[in-house]
Simulated assay, not measured.
Amino acid sequence: MAPLKHVERENPIIDASFRDFCASHGIQTVEDFLLHDLYELAAFAERQRNADRLKEGITFMLSLIELQCRPWLNGMELLEDLHRNKHTLSTGDKGIDSLLQGGFREGQVTELVGPSSSGKTQFCMQAAASVAEKYSARVLYLDTGNSFSARRIAQFICSSSDAALRQKVLSRISCQMVYDVYTMFDMLHGLEVTLRSQAQMNVNEDRLQLLVVDSISSLITPILGGSGSQGRALMVAVGYMLKKLAHEHNIAILVTNHTVGAGEGGRTKPALGETWKSIPHVRLMLTRDHRNNNCTISILKHTSMPAGHTVTTMTREDNTHCL
């Protein structure tokens, strides 16, 4: 989440004195502010010499957070927004596109769940190549495990025989390494500021249309230990920011998640628990038969179709082809 120092650019009431006061209570970011007991904070502010200014700063922070909340929309407005602004983007695989009734939906968070070595990263890179090539769109790929490979993405570009066009497609895909959830907050906040500025200037050329986070569970799992609620609060905040970016800027967001054991019988389930379950609009399960490299994708959750539908496709690590 944004450090309080960034907020000062928008309103000088959040000055060094206010930030020092917040820091003395362990508050460094907007996220910390949300997690803190605001009644207690206001009580401490009352005891300071500059109490009025500190309380004014607390009030401003609350109003700023309120402004960031999405306005109420009725069903007709949501439907019109869906048809006008929320298009579908091909995943790069005809079978999966058919399963998803066209592919990824802009404005939604799609989660791909699967065990290790099931092909999640390959799916992400194929999707990045597809969107950058077919829609001349920008793609932002947040890599949490050093798994991004420009060479592999180049193999997914169907026009890869044309070196100039291949380079142009690759130039539309940006990769950023992210190793902890706090860096993730900063990056998402910076992205939101950039997108808001572009929207105000009506910049539509090479618009960002796909954001990939591979993998979201690698960032969140380390903060969920123990019985405290802070880790879960941070997880929900990440989910909220992703959904907000998707909806307000018409971006399709793809995140990957690993699986954990679900008890006897060798069954597995998506990691991150029930709290995270409500975050993605679409949840897909990816499994691989290593005997023949066939991959099966099943719908666990979808906003416009029932769960249980599946498709099987071939995704060989050593034999990439355009579908």
Rank of each mutant, 00 (worst) to 15 (best):
I299V: 04
D143A: 06
D289Y: 11
M1S: 05
K244V: 01
E8G: 03
E248L: 11
K86G: 08
G92R: 01
E248C: 07
S149P: 06
S136V: 15
E56V: 08
R207A: 14
M184V: 07
L34E: 12
T29Q: 08
A199P: 07
G228K: 13
D143L: 05
Y182G: 06
Q209K: 12
H247I: 15
G75L: 14
V7I: 11
N202K: 14
I27W: 05
D52W: 08
G92V: 10
R138Q: 14
V109R: 02
L254Q: 02
H189G: 02
D143K: 07
L284N: 02
G95R: 15
L79G: 12
L242E: 12
L272S: 02
G75K: 06
R53A: 10
L89G: 02
L38M: 08
S90K: 01
R267G: 07
V212G: 00
S197W: 10
G102F: 03
K55G: 00
A246P: 01
L170S: 10
E274D: 10
A2Q: 07
S17V: 00
E274C: 05
T183E: 15
M201W: 15
R152G: 04
K168S: 13
I27N: 03
S218T: 05
L234V: 14
S149C: 15
A307V: 09
A246N: 01
L67M: 08
D206N: 06
L188Y: 02
Y39Q: 07
V113G: 03
L112G: 02
L67E: 12
S160F: 09
N85S: 10
F21R: 02
T194M: 10
L142C: 10
C322G: 11
E77V: 08
T303P: 15
V238N: 00
D97R: 03
A132V: 02
Y240L: 11
G103H: 00
Q200D: 04
L210Y: 01
G266D: 10
N146H: 05
Q176F: 14
T312C: 13
A233M: 09
F148S: 03
S218I: 06
D206H: 06
V30E: 00
Q209S: 14
R138V: 10
L79W: 06
L242V: 01
T29P: 01
H189L: 05
N50W: 09
P115M: 07
E10W: 14
H281C: 11
R207W: 11
T310G: 06
I27F: 06
F185H: 04
Y240A: 09
L82D: 13
M61L: 14
L35C: 11
E274P: 15
I299Y: 03
Q28T: 12
A128L: 01
K94T: 15
I279T: 12
M285G: 08
A127F: 02
G26K: 04
L67D: 13
G102V: 13
T29F: 00
L99T: 02
A128Y: 03
I279Q: 06
G26I: 03
V139G: 01
R47K: 15
V203P: 05
L99K: 00
L79V: 05
F18T: 00
Q101E: 09
A246S: 03
C124F: 13
L64Y: 11
S160H: 08
T287G: 10
S147F: 13
A137R: 03
D97I: 09
Q176D: 07
S229P: 14
V30M: 10
P12F: 11
A132I: 00
H247S: 12
Q209D: 13
L300K: 12
L73I: 15
D289F: 08
